[in-house]
Amino acid sequence: MLTRNKPYHLLSAHDLSREDLSDIGERSRYYRERVRTRAIPQMLVGRIVATLFFQPSTRTRLSFEAATQRLGGTCVGFSDPNVTKAGGEWRESMADTARVLNGYADAVVIRHNEVGAVDLHAQESAIPVINGGDGRGIRAEHPTQALIDLLSMEDDFGAIDGLKILIVGHVNQRCVHSLLIFLTKFLDVSVFLLTDDDEHLSDAEERELRSHGLTFQYVAALEDAIRRVDVIYVIGTKSPCEVAGKLVLRPEILQRSAPHVRIYHPLPRGIELPTEVDASRKAAYFRQVANGVPVRMAILERLLNGSHQGL
């Protein structure tokens, strides 16, 4: 695993090579089968993973805790910073929180509302740090969600190379940032972005993606791209109950897509993904979310059991 500093952290999609992505995918499938058969190696017995969630979470927090316990480990942590002195009125520094956690746990998963807060924690951490989502906007990331997205697409299409992907919603979100960075590591991927005018990627992010060879363009309507894509990746907006009509994947528009198209969404959803779509054979988002536990089992194995490159 390529990381910025030791101990080995997962802070950004930049931290992983294409070979790393392949290895994580392989181990995720291994653990998915092991969970199905209940024959799971207990490699984290005696290990503690701390989950520090300064923002609300359902899937990320619970799947990391489930992954830890599936592997025989235990969890400590919080889901409301106001009940701790790490958040709320005390606002203990991330550096001090890291120094404390060094003596309490073997790894830490952090979600934070500020971009860069997880990196600040990692600078003082003697244990692996995993970014469970930090902030919103420029440089915000959610690398483990993007790993789930890649595994789900590979399950359905066999490979990421050559895919045509339409992303619908507010693309200036952390899960999209990490996914786009990962997509630069594959060949002949084309991305179409449908978003509000004030939700475009920053100029710096666009230049970086293009410098790494990713082909992408903004489109004005679903009809402009839906007939020529393989993947429709729907995401939410800042106001889940107030979504521009052009960002809603209505069933009648979905009918215009190719039969092989698959729809993904990191969840939770708002009105951008109507429940009527659930009955479509193209809907893949609940299979996608089920991949959260095996993917995070594979990540914990790599960080805590030394099964990554360079160690």
Rank of each mutant, 00 (worst) to 15 (best):
L151Q: 09
M153Y: 10
E154S: 03
D156V: 01
D156K: 12
F157G: 00
F157A: 00
G158N: 10
A159N: 11
G162N: 11
G162I: 05
L163A: 05
K164H: 12
K164L: 02
I165Q: 09
I165G: 06
L166K: 07
I167D: 03
G169T: 11
H170T: 13
N172V: 02
Q173V: 08
H177E: 09
I181G: 00
I181T: 11
L183I: 05
L183C: 08
T184K: 09
K185A: 04
L187H: 14
L187R: 15
L187Q: 14
D188E: 12
D188Q: 13
F192A: 09
L194T: 02
L194M: 06
D198E: 13
D198N: 14
H200P: 00
H200C: 11
L201G: 02
D203R: 11
D203Y: 08
E205G: 00
E205K: 07
E206L: 05
R207F: 05
E208V: 03
R210L: 02
R210T: 06
H212A: 11
F216G: 06
F216A: 10
Q217P: 00
Q217E: 15
Y218I: 10
A221I: 06
L222E: 04
D224Y: 03
A225F: 03
A225L: 08
A225C: 08
I226M: 06
V229K: 07
